[in-house]
Computed example of a mutant assay.
Amino acid sequence: MIWKREATLEALNAMGEGNMVGLLDIQFERLTESTIEATMPVDGRTHQPFGLLHGGASVVLAETLGSVAGYLCTEGEQSVVGLEINANHIRGVRSGRVRGVCKALHTGGRHQVWQIDIFDEQGRLCCSSRLTTAVV
């Protein structure tokens, strides 16, 4: 297991209350020994003007997953901050919920690198993102 902190899905979802995570209805749904998953609706909150999932919303989902995963890999008073994120938008999505799956590429003492892939309800890859965080 890569996680150094205890966490439940209920506690992770409570972290979203009163911030962008809650506003976009991002829901943590799975926590395994090495991955974390969350879903987000594709609706008026997350659409761009042409009715597709906004690329920025995908990045919010990716950064949320990577940042929470990064925090779970720290101890004590440590936390993480994002240094860089990139996203390749591969397939448009008009409705439903997308699922982000986050896994570690590197969890060092000073920085971390996270791969976040976002899938539509048919399991097709829609966005591939990588987040680098600094441990502070």
Score class of each variant (00 low, 15 high):
T32W: 00
V135F: 02
I90W: 00
L105R: 08
E29K: 06
Q78M: 04
A87Q: 02
E29Q: 10
R99V: 14
V80S: 01
C73K: 02
V21W: 13
E75S: 12
Q78P: 03
T64C: 00
G51A: 03
H111C: 12
T132L: 07
V60W: 03
N13F: 09
N19I: 10
T39A: 10
G55V: 06
I2S: 08
Q122K: 12
V21P: 13
L83H: 02
T132E: 10
A134D: 08
M40H: 10
G56D: 13
M40G: 09
S58D: 08
R30Q: 14
R99Y: 11
G51V: 04
G44L: 12
L65Y: 03
I2H: 07
L24N: 10
G56K: 13
P41L: 04
G55C: 11
G55Q: 07
L23M: 14
C102K: 08
C73H: 11
T8I: 10
F28R: 02
L12E: 01
M15Y: 04
M1I: 11
A57I: 04
L125V: 02
A38D: 12
D117N: 12
T133A: 13
G70R: 03
L24M: 15
A69M: 11
G123C: 10
C102E: 12
T64K: 01
R30C: 07
G123R: 00
